[in-house]
């Protein structure tokens, strides 16, 4: 029983990070119908920016205020990265064939990884202790305070995004652009600005995921390490499972993936953990080709 609870909590912790990352993939896909391969690099940058900001401001001991400051700083820097990425790499290709855009995205991704190695080095970096590490017991299970804070932060950001997308004028504009750029333009919506905004928001969430990964694991691997890409790939799979282009779907997919990984690794040989994402993807797409919350293509009159 206690191991069940352990897997549940760990699954939620990992899953909420996948979810944060999945949101960026799904929002960009929803609006431009392309997979932003460089998203996992923005996520990586989020972790490294957080580290550098902590070093810069000499944060050597846990402080919630400083941690929040670092979070906001990393979000701002990644937002800027996402903005520039869209403005200078993707926007010039807005009318080009999908394949060109995809190749550009892969190129940008490699560029960021190599530039990242140059700037941040090739070693594992010890992440500064931004938050105090406590452990306490719940139902016979050890729970780390930083994991709780990570989950709470991730959920708060997701609720914020959900509110933005479904309750504000700007969110309505984002949804309209994701349905049809031309018609959105005819409504008076500045389509290019909304696309920029989508990258900015997705990148900010990736930055948060980067920081939370650093805090949870206490160290971050070098910029070109394959684990960043694997993380991104799984988050993308989570977005597809939930229904690509669908915001609540990305959150659901992320949590589901995190939970299944933990339970599979817990009860079955743990080598299966990384395979579960893809297995889950195949099963769900067989049953629901548009993902869990994806809509069937609604009547196009």
């Amino acid at each position: 029983m206690s191991s069940f609870l352990q897997f549940l909590l760990k699954g939620i912790a990992v899953g909420s990070l996948y979810a944060l990352l999945a949101l960026g993939y799904t929002m960009v896909y929803g609006i431009l119908q392309f997979i932003n391969f460089a998203h996992s690099d923005v996520f990586m940058l989020g972790a490294f920016f957080s580290w550098r900001l902590s070093v810069l401001f000499k944060i050597n001991e846990p402080s919630p205020v400083a941690a929040t400051g670092v979070l906001l700083g990393a979000m701002a820097l990644c937002s800027l990265t996402g903005f520039l990425l869209e403005r200078f790499a993707y926007r010039p290709l807005r009318r080009a064939p999908r394949l060109n855009v995809l190749i550009t995205a892969i190129g940008v991704s490699l560029f960021i990884e190599n530039a990242g190695q140059l700037v941040f080095g090739k070693n594992v970096v010890q992440f500064p202790p931004l938050l105090a590490e406590h452990t306490f017991e719940v139902g016979g299970v050890r729970v780390r305070s930083v994991e709780v804070i990570a989950v709470v932060t991730a959920f708060a950001l997701m609720v914020g995004l959900h509110t933005l997308v479904y309750r504000t004028r700007m969110g309505k504009a984002m949804r309209a652009v994701s349905i049809d750029h031309n018609i959105a333009g005819l409504m008076g919506i500045p389509v290019d600005r909304i696309i920029s905004l989508t990258f900015v928001i997705g990148s900010a969430l990736a930055a948060a995921a980067g920081l939370l990964v650093g805090i949870t694991y206490g160290q971050i691997k070098q910029p070109a390490d394959s684990s960043w890409v694997l993380y991104g790939l799984k988050a993308f799979v989570a977005a597809v499972i939930g229904g690509i282009g669908n915001v609540p779907g990305a959150m659901l997919g992320g949590l589901l993936l995190g939970l299944s990984e933990q339970f599979v690794a817990g009860y079955l040989p743990s080598e299966l953990r990384d395979a579960i994402a893809f297995l889950l993807l195949i099963i769900i797409l067989l049953v629901r080709p548009n993902g869990l919350l994806g809509r069937r293509v609604v009547e196009k009159v």
């Binding site: 949804r175 309209a176 809509r295 609604v298 009159v301």
Partner: peptide
């Protein structure tokens, strides 16, 4: 001018095929 700027000047276009946002 971009479409959104033209709307602001006072031209509205109900396009061919209606262009309704069906999921909204």
């Amino acid at each position: 001018l971009a479409p959104h700027a033209i709307v602001r000047l006072g031209i509205a276009h109900a396009p061919e095929g209606r262009g309704i946002f069906g999921t909204l």
